[in-house]
Each structure stands twice: as C-alpha cells, then as structure tokens.
Amino acid sequence: MSVKSSAHLNAPVRNVGTMTLYFVDDIAVIVMDNGENRLNDTFVIAFNELLDDVESNSCRGLITTSVGKFYCNGLDLAWMNEISKEQTRDFFLKFSKLIMRLLLFPVPSLAAVNGHAFAGGALLAITHDLQVQRRDTGWLCFNEVFINKQFIKFHYTLMRTKIGTGHSYTDAVILGKRYTGPEALINGLVHAAPSMPLLLSESIQLLKSFYGKSGYPRESLQLMKSDVYRDVINQYQQDLSEGHIINKGDIIAKKAKL
C-alpha cells in the first residue's frame, strides 16, 4: 500500500476494522480507510487498539493519515441517530478520553492530513504534536458555527493552547474558516504543506528531524506534555466531574434525532 505517496507502506503489522498499522523504519503509521472516517464507537475502539500496539513497540514516533479525499469528517451523526442516549453519552466519554490519550501520547505524533478534516476530525488532527496538510486539495476546518454545534469546554482550552489566542483562533474557531494547506501553514496551524505525493515522506522526515538518532525518553516526553497541557488536563477533569461531556452527548443525541 502506498497511500499515493513516495514513502511506501508495505507489510501491514495489524488490521483493526478499516484501520491498518504499518512501520516505516522506527515510525508507526496508522492509516484510516473508511471513506469519510466518521467518528463513532468503531473508530474509537480501533484507534485505541492500534495505539496500544504502538505503545508496546519500541518505535520513536507516530503518524496518522488516511486514503482518499478525507482525513476525518467529524461525528457520525447517522450512526448517532440509531443509538440510545446512554450509548451516545458513552461515546463522548470514550472520544474525550482518546483525545487526552493522544495529546499526552509518550512518543511524538504527527497528523498527515491527506484531505478534508472537519469539526471533530480537525480537533483530532491538531491534538497531535505536529501537523502536515497536503497543499493541493482539502480543508482543515472547525465548522461547528455553521452547523449549530459547540465544542466541549476542554476542547476550547485545547484549541487555544494549540492555535493561540490571536486572530487565527478567532478565524478558525469562531468564524469557522476553511484552511487550505498553504493557508494553514501561513497561519501556523500546520508545520508543512507538501504535495500529496510527498505527504508521507515529508511527514516522516519532519518527525525524524525532531527526535534525531536516539528518540525521546518516553517518560520524559509524557511528563513534559503533562506540564505544558496542564490547563487542558484540568479543564478535562472539571468537565468530567461536572458532567459537561455527558451533557454534550445528550445535546448531540437530541439534535441527531431531529
């Protein structure tokens, strides 16, 4: 499998549903291949299982990407229309936990955004340590304002930490700007915007440029992330204790069934 890139992915290590884990040298690569890669229980379970595999391996970095025109197109509202309120609540707890796991992951992570990343998909992308977005097509967009939805409180703290509090935050989060790869690069949302044939190879090169020959000590890296993202952690814990995450599930469940 090549993911239409000059860095070829051969000999998959493991498939979980529509996700596949590869290793390129000392970097783990998770490839999502389910069309729009909508966020649902199946997505979260598969993603977590492959993260378990990555953590148990001695690799030095993680890349996530997809095939086709989407990286991740946000919540699976059609699926949510079919499940119970309790199941929707459970999903939001699981997804929030996945976001925090990825934020504090003990190896450096990079989202290689191959196509559209909207709403929860854009949130997933910026949760990685590094972001690379293809330059020729696809948007990175927090489009909640256009679909009458809001993020959970700790998501806003996460986005402020990742994007900053200046005009880029206003444009991206409040006004829901759609960023092409070059626009995202200019505004500091991504680290590079290569053409699609070079997306994976440049992502690998970028990730390796940070960890060098020896990689990061995992415990040290995770402790550093915990310090830097302390405000996000605190807000996440507060949202859990005050029921905001479960309440978000109730709101989405109600709107999905309208």
Results as ranks from 00 to 15, higher is better:
residue 62 L to S: 02
residue 248 K to T: 07
residue 74 G to P: 00
residue 244 H to S: 12
residue 249 G to M: 02
residue 125 A to C: 08
residue 21 L to N: 00
residue 52 D to E: 12
residue 37 N to E: 01
residue 116 H to E: 02
residue 179 Y to K: 04
residue 9 L to H: 04
residue 19 M to V: 01
residue 170 T to H: 11
residue 61 G to S: 06
residue 6 S to E: 15
residue 66 S to L: 02
residue 50 L to H: 01
residue 121 G to W: 00
residue 15 N to K: 14
residue 86 E to H: 12
residue 133 Q to W: 03
residue 201 S to Q: 12
residue 35 G to D: 02
residue 111 A to L: 05
residue 191 H to S: 14
residue 243 G to I: 01
residue 20 T to I: 03
residue 202 E to T: 15
residue 57 N to Q: 11
residue 225 K to T: 07
residue 70 F to I: 00
residue 132 V to C: 05
residue 42 T to I: 11
residue 17 G to Q: 00
residue 110 L to N: 06
residue 23 F to R: 09
residue 134 R to P: 03
residue 102 L to S: 09
residue 120 G to Y: 02
residue 203 S to P: 09
residue 147 I to H: 09
residue 111 A to T: 05
residue 6 S to Y: 15
residue 44 V to E: 06
residue 15 N to Y: 11
residue 155 H to C: 08
residue 77 L to S: 14
residue 135 R to P: 05
residue 125 A to H: 02
residue 101 R to Q: 15
residue 108 P to S: 10
residue 206 L to G: 09
residue 220 S to G: 11
residue 54 V to W: 02
residue 226 S to A: 14
residue 69 K to G: 06
residue 149 K to Y: 10
residue 97 K to T: 14
residue 191 H to P: 08
residue 132 V to Q: 01
residue 246 I to M: 08
residue 63 I to A: 03
residue 70 F to S: 02
residue 251 I to R: 12
residue 240 L to G: 02
residue 224 M to G: 13
residue 149 K to H: 11
residue 15 N to C: 11
residue 14 R to N: 09
residue 154 F to Q: 03
residue 97 K to Y: 11
residue 173 V to S: 01
residue 11 A to R: 14
